[in-house]
Nucleic acid binder design. Structure first.
Lengths: 359, 359
DNA sequence: CTGAAAGCGCTTACAG
DNA sequence: CTGAAAGCGCTTACAG
């Protein structure tokens, strides 16, 4: 084992040994030999030799400081990146980020130090933006702190949110799945199957993704029967509010198509209906507005799918563009189309007898 | 939206505005006020005020350069960190790393840029150690490049491998599950159930983890019947070599306990046996030397479990120790005990009739 | 209790 | 084609 030298060789050491100036070495190691300046091949050989014998490797921190930038893109999540429980929400996005970062020759900096005692994370700690080490960052999380987003926005720190997020201060950069269109398409698909009376189940929480889905639903809703008794859109705080009585009421009112914000809703609808001996797709159709994170083992939902991997990649590309060029703030909203999967929970009206059933 | 200032404020700006020297500001922002130097509370207030009005946030790169260290721990993997296919080998380790890094106030730097055209990764690119940005790194991977490990070792770059790895040059730092003991214990457990004739199935590949398991097996093996016909240890390149004929030969020779290096081996043993109408635990017992990555849905194996999360945490702790103190090279090998899970694939000899069966 | 100065290891115009 | 110098933004002894 080699003796531990007091300090690693630096560029100046190389220069001295090669008998050239530091500037020349810098140009050489950065491979910028042909660009503006030429270095004689003998000199190059001397430098290469010196680097070899010294075992020189450039200090990336110093380089970052001098250049004013580095090859890091940050990833900040408001919840743990690698949770033990629950399927990993972030995983597929990270897969896309890793892939694209690899291609763009970026390294990915995970901000894990910003964890507060309560487990939540913050960008700002004692009024310091902890993201600064990276030139820009990708943020993810179900419950971002809007005040922090505003502050980042005002500071001009380059960041891209995964998922559409709004702040009052102006348009922030995001990459999002086009759930509005996908929801509209889902409704259209069900209508093409003959369904006219719909019930839409969603949580009360007024988040952008929920809002976008409802927007898409209302777009598709125009040709639908709206006034049939119970409200066509059912808001609930918990899934337990989806009872057999509730489902019975909808079925009695002639609803043949259910649209569920999450697979959780869908499961509860299915369970409540089965207590009434009503099943999909025989007695009604049921579609989910998005794909469950876990490969959805038992039930083959009709649903749209969110291209999370592609979204991760797009986020890196957008951030990269913001870092090197300047992207106008109103051109920083990227939307990628969803996929659609026809499963076993939907079927044509009448053909299978799924129509107004008296219970 | 605020006008984009030409450059962010720096420490010197704060100093000027507050009417103090940069050094004083530095001490203040680093919260080292009480330590060696005292700053009058009026001065502190002026500095705080200046920071606030300027919106100053310290440049972490400059700080790293000046201090000669930063709060980054690198994570380098020889295979993609977030694969699309196959369960994620790295995930549970990363979960532990994230957890511990959060507690130690470290950020985690994922080296994703080092991807070569062929998909493999290297630490050294055009003879430059790409890990340098982080003060130290945790390496993972099934097939590390030994030459690179040697080079890192000689360079004195602080790194910890997850899993025991050897290089000829000297002892490298690692955190590993104690699979030797766990394998020994597994054999002992089966012996306590009355089994005496064992067959051990493993791949030919001579990796450290495979070697450690075999060592444990041989330790437990001493009291076992060794000469009963077919070799007590079966080496194979592919799992397809585990045929019904092979299993029949072992069963006929009186083997009642199979020990499988991986759950893949175990599945093939089970399948081959069932073709002979022989089942575990009725006709033989079967234990797996480690837990499958995926929660192993259908089959409740008897196996030992690898505490991956704990290993991830230990790796961060060890690296941290190496970074701040100096840990002797021969004290850098950490081994954590495995868990043991009694499943449905093992049972007592005789009690259930699993003994020499003629086929 | 605070200031002036040197230094961390590089890069980048600017001269020759 | 190459060198000398200033600068990136901070920290850290060392003086006062």
């Amino acid at each position: 084992m080699k003796a531990k030298e007091p300090r690693p060789p630096k560029l100046a050491d190389v220069a001295r040994l090669a008998g050239v100036s530091p500037g020349t070495v810098s140009i050489y190691v950065n491979g910028r030999v042909g660009e503006h300046t030429r270095i004689s091949s003998e000199t190059q050989e001397r430098i290469a030799e010196a680097i070899r014998t010294l075992g020189y490797v450039p200090n990336p921190v110093a380089r970052s400081l001098a250049k004013g930038r580095n090859d890091l893109i940050g990833v900040f999540t408001y919840e743990p990146i690698f949770p033990t429980e629950h399927g990993n929400f972030f995983y597929p996005f990270l897969a896309g980020i890793e892939e694209e970062a690899g291609e763009q020759d970026f390294n990915v900096l995970l901000f894990t130090s910003a964890t507060q005692p309560n487990g939540k994370r913050r960008v700002y700690r004692n009024s310091m933006n902890s993201l600064q080490l990276a030139g820009g960052a990708i943020l993810m999380g179900l419950e971002p702190d809007r005040a922090e987003l505003s502050r980042l926005y005002h500071e001009g720190y380059p960041f891209v949110f995964i998922g559409r997020r709004e702040i009052p201060d102006g348009p922030i950069a995001y990459v999002s799945a086009d759930v509005t269109t996908a929801t509209n398409d889902t409704v259209t698909y069900l209508m093409d199957l003959g369904h006219r009376r719909f019930a839409y189940f969603r949580f009360t929480a007024d988040t952008e993704p929920a809002r976008d889905r409802e927007t898409g639903y209302r777009q598709g809703h125009r040709e639908l029967d709206a006034d049939f008794g119970p409200p066509a859109i059912h808001y609930s705080t918990t899934l337990d509010e989806i009872t057999s009585e509730l489902i019975a009421a909808y079925l009695s009112a002639g609803v043949t198509a259910f649209v569920a914000e999450t697979d959780g809703h869908a499961r509860h609808i299915l369970a409540s209906a089965s207590a009434l001996s009503r099943y999909a797709p025989d007695h009604f159709s049921l579609a989910v507005l998005g794909d469950p994170l876990e490969p959805a083992p038992e039930i083959d939902w009709t649903m749209f799918t969110i291209p999370r991997r592609a979204i991760g990649r797009e986020a890196v590309r957008l951030l990269h563009a913001m870092l090197v060029q300047s992207v106008p703030t109103d051109a920083r909203q990227i939307t990628v189309p969803c996929g659609f999967h026809v499963g076993q929970t939907t079927g044509p009206l009448n053909a299978t007898g799924n129509q107004e059933v008296t219970i």
